[in-house]
Design a protein around this nucleic acid. Structure first.
Lengths: 114, 114
DNA sequence: TGGAAATGAAACGCATCCGTAACGATTGTT
DNA sequence: AACAATCGTTACGGATGCGTTTCATTTCCA
């Protein structure tokens, strides 16, 4: 699998998946929001607002607002950290997992026809 | 090369590239804008506003405004079609090509370590 | 030639996002 | 107990994007 993609192949993959994403367009997330979502689902918990902000090199309000909008879509959830009630723990949802499954399928399918 | 990516691999690739994109963040394009940009550079010209709108399933003003903002960043240019002066031909720029080269490098690099 | 059709842009109202600067709540410290 | 530090959120002003509608320009065609 360690076969690096050539320039044209890489861009074609990106193009095809982005295009499909725009077509389906159920959620219409920004690049930042997708990054946050993927970080939550791909990296080990716990995920606090501060950690996410640091990892993405953005301010905390950016994370808060992204969680607000993605929370409305049921892609993530918040919960108070009971051991330190200042913290907020960001958690996954079924709908968020399904969203990323679909994205992965899209990428996988388009990586076939390069 | 026709080795389809698994779910985890596909998401990791998407995550890594998105994260790098957010980190560098010179342009901060939306998903739609990136789709438009890639369409212009990957598919055969000529590209009119109407064609792009149809291909992306969005309204024409969306294309117009995306070209406005990406034009400010020197990623694309407009030119009147002299054979039919109603049309506007969208054209590539050096800076746009460099932008996509960098994106392709990013994807290629991250596709190595799966 | 004169009216219909097509194209891209501009106008309008609305929603969303950003960065900075505050703020309340909670915890740590002395 | 009092004060400082930390965390997430909210407020604010400004910028940007969207969809629909309207418009000016250009071309087609009867």
């Amino acid at each position: 699998m360690a076969i690096p993609l050539g320039t044209a192949q890489a861009l074609k993959l990106w193009h095809d998946v982005n295009l499909a994403q725009v077509h389906v367009d159920e959620a219409d997330l920004s690049t930042r929001q997708i990054s946050i979502l993927l970080t939550i689902y791909m990296e080990a918990p716990p995920h606090t607002i501060r950690d996410l902000a640091k990892k993405l090199h953005v301010s905390k309000p950016v994370i808060t607002r992204a969680l607000d909008s993605m929370g409305k879509l049921d892609l993530v959830t918040r919960r108070r950290d009971e051991t330190d009630r200042r913290n907020v723990l960001v958690q996954r949802t079924v709908k968020g997992a399904l969203y990323l499954d679909r994205l992965a399928d899209l990428i996988g399918a388009h990586s076939k026809n390069l």
